[in-house]
């Protein structure tokens, strides 16, 4: 019970911090939207002939969502480091609150921030005609998935922040997702890939997260894609939270 209350209070604190720093939040959403616009603008018109994708704008919406999640978690990593450097993290550790709950407050806030940005990006997509094949129920599933992925990815940055205490490392942590995005089906389906890239995309969990989101936006309900996406997110989260716990233990020992 105390853990849940701690996570709740510290999530509110992190969200308040985000609201009071609108320039950072604007950066988190504008940069992914910039890449989204450039990608759609540059290859959108040939996507149907080249890849067999009619709705390339909708195809790209999940990429923008994951890029935004990456950006959010990098800024949260920096926030954790600021807390460590200012001694506020120690002040939190000196309360009787469970220490893992203290870290998860910020991670949960990242999940909420990812949900908000996902809703915004989907809205932008709708304006540009992506549509949303699974309607409001699908949107709710997408938002839940974004919450999970936002938290899962945030765990990596929390681990980096706790282990290194370095702002540079935290900033670099946000970039970890980009190689995984490029090695996934972010820009084209697997069947147009070279064999080696197809293998990498197949073992890359980001591929499954993207395809689950895409199925909701442009294909309609596909239970298998959603299950694979959920499994990939859970696996991602299990790995990142394990690293977070280890880093927290290291920092407090």
């Amino acid at each position: 019970m105390q853990s849940i209350a701690t996570v709740y209070f510290l999530t509110l604190r992190s969200l308040r911090e985000a609201v009071r720093n609108p320039a950072q939040e604007a950066g988190n959403v504008l940069i992914p939207l910039f890449f989204f616009a450039v990608t759609v603008g540059s290859i959108g018109s040939i996507a149907a002939d080249a890849f067999g994708i009619d709705n390339f704008t909708g195809f790209q919406v999940p990429v923008a969502i994951l890029a935004a999640a990456s950006s959010i978690s990098a800024s949260a990593g920096l926030g954790t480091i600021t807390d460590i450097q200012r001694g506020y993290f120690d002040k939190l550790l000196l309360t009787p609150a469970p220490r893992s709950a203290i870290v998860f407050g910020r991670i949960a806030a990242d999940g909420v921030r990812t949900v908000a940005i996902t809703a915004f990006i989907v809205g932008v997509g709708l304006i540009f005609g992506t549509g949303f094949d699974t309607g409001v129920p699908g949107l709710l599933v997408l938002l839940v998935g974004s919450f999970g992925f936002g938290m899962a990815y945030s765990g990596f940055n929390a681990a980096i922040a706790l282990r290194t205490g370095s702002p540079q490392a935290a900033a670099a942590g946000g970039l970890l997702l980009f190689p995984l995005i490029f090695l996934s089906t972010a820009f084209a389906p697997k069947d147009v890939f070279a064999d080696w890239l197809e293998v990498l995309a197949t073992i890359n969990p980001i591929t499954y997260v993207l395809e689950a989101q895409r199925s909701l936006i442009i294909e309609g309900w596909n239970g298998l894609d959603i299950l694979w996406g959920a499994a990939a997110t859970l696996g991602f989260g299990a790995a990142s939270f394990t690293l977070t716990f280890l880093a927290l233990r290291w920092r407090t020992s």
Binding site: R16, E17, D83, R86
Partner: peptide, 11 residues
């Protein structure tokens, strides 16, 4: 109260 006043400037 530790040596560096451990506070959060945003709150």
């Amino acid at each position: 109260a530790l040596q560096e006043a451990g506070l959060d400037d945003v709150q």
